[in-house]
Nucleic acid binder design. Structure first.
Lengths: 218, 218
DNA sequence: ACTGAGTTCGAACGAACGTTCGAATGAGTC
DNA sequence: GACTCATTCGAACGTTCGTTCGAACTCAGT
């Protein structure tokens, strides 16, 4: 019944080509709910968080939430898709016009860590709940993830070709992701360095690890 | 009532000093249940797995399970504690008699990856559900984790002193854990190398990353 | 003041959750 | 066979889960 109605929830889908939708009241409120839901998912996990938790956190009634999305699973999907899309978009902008392979990898790492640390909750939900979705939802998120992965593979292959290096790109990329994504389990802003400094240290370590004796240049 | 009874569930606690308890029928059965539960937790997550799932997987009735442990949370605790204790024990044995700092780090990595890959389910539960426990349970697991972490810090500090290196031990250790623990998200036994080969590649990469220009020796 | 679409909510739905209890089995000793 | 523990189970407990429904509210345009 509701699924076939003309309720405005269905209008939240972005139009093709419109990179900036006309932030309506609906979209704004949805954004707030997504933000609160992200915090709750981060603290209690997707399965551990109840719709009543989300209701309490966002200050909206339980039933009211369902005006903005069709199901709890779809809510997680919206969060993951938005977060992942944003990080890929930012990366592409930052990579434009930079040609040196090593520098491009440094940018990749900095972009990832910067976004990770300023959106820790969202990124934890992204890293931690990556197999909580099913079927269609899972496929769509997996597609964005694969694109992001492929970009990184491309950067490393550039470096290999440019410097004539030999190593397993797959293991290098996945190790790099491991280093970066693990951060949500330990980073404490009062003790640990900020994104710039962390990115510098991890880049240094990773690049040295991947280059056979060749000096890294900064 | 049950908590104060003389039910044999209370006898499963190890006696002090007995490193090998007298594998009774009870302990055997408990072990089987833990193994099945580990698989289920791995597939569906701790919160996502229901006691009825565990019942189905272990072939024992719902009520029957409670003869072997007091609660679902305690079950997760038993799994985590056993897994973590085992990996630390094995590491200590392997490190005995090896004095070279670099070689000790290679052993650490190999031990971790070997155990990780041959007990993937258990290690995923350990990595993924590390904040699912509360209060007392969480503290006890955290204590073992801290010991394991400190061992690794010690190994890296040895290396730094022996070679006169300079880097942040904390970031190096946590990056190494990230590389290694991330494996559960990607390792495919039909495509990827085995533990020996992976450990060799990761050790090579990590050690080169941490040593300033100094050659690694194998 | 009235309309109509957009937004919110209280109350309830059936299902699934973790856990308990008392009775029924099983195995080993007299 | 009878006694004793250890083990297992069906059936139910009260609670919480995700979701739905219809009624109410808000507010811009008349």
């Amino acid at each position: 019944m509701v699924a076939t109605s003309t309720t405005s929830a269905r209008l939240s889908v972005r139009q093709r080509g419109n990179s900036r939708p006309p932030a309506t009241r609906f979209d704004k409120r949805l954004g707030q709910i997504l933000a609160h839901a992200t915090d709750v998912f981060c603290k209690k996990g997707y399965e551990g968080a109840s719709m009543r938790d989300l209701s309490r956190a966002s200050g909206m009634s339980l039933a009211g939430l369902y005006y903005y999305f069709q199901s709890k699973e779809r809510l997680l999907f919206l969060i993951q898709k938005h977060t992942f899309t944003t990080i890929v978009e930012r990366l592409k902008v930052r990579l434009e016009g930079v040609n040196d392979a090593e520098q491009r990898i440094r940018i990749f790492i900095l972009n990832h860590l910067e976004y990770f640390l300023s959106n820790q909750a969202a990124m934890k939900v992204l890293s931690h709940e990556d197999d909580a979705l099913k079927n269609g939802f899972a496929l769509e998120v997996a597609a964005i993830k694969r694109e992001y992965y492929r970009i990184c593979v491309g950067l490393l292959d550039e470096l290999k070709r440019e410097r004539g290096l030999q190593f397993s790109t797959r293991i290098a990329v996945l190790s790099l992701f491991g280093m970066m994504n693990w951060i949500y389990t330990w980073h404490n802003p009062r003790v640990d360095a900020d994104a710039d400094e962390l990115a510098r240290q991890m880049s240094e370590m990773f690049l040295r690890g991947v280059m056979n004796g060749a000096r890294t240049r900064r």
